[in-house]
Design a protein around this nucleic acid. Structure first.
Ligand code: ZN
Ligand code: ZN
Ligand code: ZN
Ligand code: ZN
Lengths: 145, 145
DNA sequence: CTTGAACCTCTAGTCGCTATAGGGATTACA
DNA sequence: TGTAATCCCTATAGCGACTAGAGGTTCAAG
């Protein structure tokens, strides 16, 4: 019925210190304890931790996961908030892809700029790294709004 | 000839605390000081900071930038190391893009799973967030080697 | 009952900055 | 020369999501 934190870790693939961290951050409820102060979990904790893990694997930040857990406990609330979280995350992922694609293009150009010389002086890679005017596009990190 | 840290910040777009941080981390040489202990920079520092900024805008981690700066100061060294840094960064960017594309696909599916009901119970978004078996693909974060 | 694995709390480190506090220096202008 | 505004200094703490370690306690198997 009840199981230890190590057991929970084994069943979910989440490391033990991470589980304790999630509890401290309020994503997992504080479980019951043995007389010797060790945590004992139940099936519902397994579900909750699986939910958290999957959300993390989708890249959601912890505040968003907290909000989703809240929603799951108030099933009569409107679903707008959950939808908005999904849409926001999708947008954020797309922005990151767009940014990385610019970096990819410039890095392709830079790696190609090695002219086969043997020394740093002969090679244009270092110049390409240092000189943005050689770049085709802007590629600075977006201001994380 | 010489200019203050604020002036350097203005000319490069790098914030003042960031400049001090780069100095502490050994990317920028410690500049001369006024009698009142304020930093005074010269043209070569401007170049160096520009180089650093551009590398950061290309996503390079600071150790790689340190290595590139070292190479720039020993122009007779072989260029292999610079080429390797560029190739490594390109590969890393491509892996991140591949990962984010998987997230994008799953998040598209999740946002589309809102069936138009008004409450959390009616809406499938929360279920989709919690249940990886509904996903088409693996999408866990790659172990950052 | 003894052993050894697993558990506990607490602290600090990761990365690349950014923000704040509490002071001192420089500069411009009267 | 006085003074006020603006700049600069150091040192420390915080961000996010963990991870690693120290130093000590409890549990379960034999
Ligand atoms: Zn080369
Ligand atoms: Zn560039
Ligand atoms: Zn919905
Ligand atoms: Zn999934």
């Amino acid at each position: 019925m009840d199981f230890s934190i190590g057991e929970l870790a084994k069943r979910t693939g989440v490391k033990v210190p991470t589980i304790r961290y999630y509890e401290k951050e309020g994503l997992l409820d504080a479980p019951l304890r043995t007389q010797g102060n060790q945590r004992r979990y139940r099936a519902q904790d397994l579900d909750r931790l699986g939910f958290i893990r999957h959300c993390r694997d989708l890249g959601l930040p912890m505040p968003a996961i907290r909000d989703l857990i809240d929603l799951g406990q108030h099933p009569d609330k409107p679903c707008r908030e959950a939808d908005r979280i999904a849409a926001t995350q999708l947008q954020s992922v797309r922005e990151r892809i767009a940014h990385l694609r610019k970096l990819e293009a410039e890095l392709e150009r830079i790696t190609a700029s090695c002219k086969g010389g043997h020394t740093v002086t002969d090679c244009n890679v270092l110049k390409a790294f240092g000189d943005h005017s050689l770049c085709r596009d802007e590629h600075a990190a977006p201001t994380k709004a």
